[in-house]
Design a binder for these strands. Structure first.
Lengths: 183, 183
DNA sequence: CAACAACTATTGACGTCAACAATTATTGCT
DNA sequence: AGCAATAATTGTTGACGTCAATAGTTGTTG
């Protein structure tokens, strides 16, 4: 404990109302506006929860990434597929689904979009005619090359206030907790 | 069935000098299913991106929290509002919106739900009849007290593979990058 | 070898959720 | 008094996850 998280939450409303106000309106008794014995553990700020922080920053990260990709007509999920294909030299859609955690039905649309943009291609699997193998096209590779730097800038912006050592430390920690759940 | 995991490569690319890459000069029918000159920076695994890891873990965190809250009929966002109210002794909806990062229109529904459950109440603001002040009810406080332990268990489950020192370190790092964007 | 179970990609329906625009009531300014 | 700004609210739209159903294909098994 003993973190300086209080900085994130401001003390309610200053309410510098100068005007003399009227009737107190509601006077039900089930609400107690009194400042109850503070410092109870259950009333700590939101940012005291690592889980909530992760949730929050995850949203921000996704937003940043999406606005960065927006000009290319893709979204984060497409980018994830591309990046996955870049390391795997072709994958069954079923694999994409399992590894990236998206529903099989979602993969369909994603690969459709990537094919429309010419970044990926569906090929018939030689041994199983049910399956399709998705591979990067040359222009897909080019896209990854060209946007790589900008993508890293986005991440850089996200972890802005951290120095190099801290970034590495954070990355290692995240990797550690990402490793157990297959993700 | 399990393919080799590519994710556990060395953490965080030091991102040394950007070595210039050569063009394979493939002008034919794109796509080379062959293992191309690997180790190019742009084809590192997805988990090499801190931003993507954050996005991914944020999703997981949200899911865990939601399944934990599911029995009480609330979701993460409701819980966030409650926790915020617990620290601020009443807040304008506008403040909730600004502090929690939710759209004003979202606050409406959230407070509606909380009122239905009897955990919060809308009160007319004394100085401005446009505003409503949202306060915790007594049973709202009770709810927070009762669910606090379980909530911390959820976070504990999330950061499972980390020891105490690492958890604290992670929390501090997240806090640091959460601080800049108001969030 | 013929019937059946399992599997891959796909489509469709439904509910949730977040981001925007528009509306109503109210306030502050001049 | 008039007018821009503001707080809460409604409505709409698009993205997204889940789940059920289907067509084509494979493997198994009786």
């Amino acid at each position: 404990m003993a973190h300086g998280y209080e900085m994130l939450e401001s003390p309610a409303v200053p309410s510098a109302g100068r005007t003399e106000h009227r009737e107190p309106a509601i006077t039900r008794q089930n609400v107690t506006p009194r400042a109850m014995d503070a410092d109870e553990p259950w009333m700590r700020g939101l940012h005291a929860d690592t889980g909530y922080l992760l949730y929050r920053l995850g949203l921000r990260s996704g937003q940043l990434f999406n606005t960065f990709l927006q000009e290319s007509g893709l979204r984060l999920r497409h980018y994830a597929v591309l990046r996955f294909l870049a390391t795997s030299e072709g994958a069954l859609q079923r694999e994409l689904s399992a590894r990236l955690g998206y529903d099989p039905s979602a993969i369909v649309g994603l690969v459709d979009d990537l094919e429309k943009q010419g970044f990926a291609e569906r090929r018939p699997a030689p041994d199983d005619r049910r399956s399709r193998i998705v591979v990067l096209t040359e222009s897909g590779r080019a896209f990854l090359r060209d946007t790589d730097e900008a993508g890293q800038r986005v991440t850089g912006e996200l972890v802005g206030p951290l120095d190099a050592a801290e970034r590495e430390s954070l990355h290692a920690l995240l990797l550690k907790i990402a490793a157990d759940g297959l993700n």
